[in-house]
Amino acid sequence: MIHFSNVSKIYENQTALRNITFSVEKGEMAFITGPSGAGKSTLLKIIYLSEKPDEGSVTIAEWELSKLKESSIPFLRRNIGVVFQDFRLLDNRNVFDNVAMALRIRGMTEYDVKERVMEVLKTVNLRHKTDSFPKALSGGEQQRVVIARAIVGEPTVLLADEPTGNLDSDTAAGITRMFKEINAKGTTVLVATHNRELFRNTGRRVIKIDNGAIVGEELG
């Protein structure tokens, strides 16, 4: 589903990724871990086309990203749900509208939007916060809004960048459980985190990177 082949990314004078090669299979749930600055976010950004690799090639499903027409990018992105490390919630819109946005850009009718958003907000346990604004939510609640927005469009791939941030371990465990459920329904899930708690005892593949390079792989 996701295939990196000798991918490197160099920012001005900082090498963020060196010669990365790995694959994530369809329906798999895998983790990427490494210390801060290792290149986890950069790797995910390449997948959702927010950054372009300087070397190597990346294939998502059957699409070779470098050969993708720019006008097709939106349609690929609709198949990739992203939990952004910095959330990217819209402060001037309430929880409902933030989640609904992912469906509205697809041109879904307001009736269907409402039904689907309410369903997802129930999944992430935020039905009671529908009308709240992001600034009025706790960190964990905001995190769950971002997750809701990422999964509301039923993407084939879910990318989560540090989805538990600095949440307490109970809340973190709840979020991991949620990802497992999503994965169980067939979505390919790739989680980037420096938090070992998240993949301990999951039995899933963990790709370890440091200083932009893959330094090992283990089972969680």
Binding site: Y48, S50, S71, P74, F75, L76, R77, R78, V82, F84, R88, L90, N92, M101, A102, I105, R106, R149, G153
Partner: peptide
């Protein structure tokens, strides 16, 4: 800001 987010969610031109 908002437009950047729209783009990342898959909004067309």
């Amino acid at each position: 800001e908002e437009i950047e987010t729209f783009k990342l969610l898959g909004a067309t031109r």
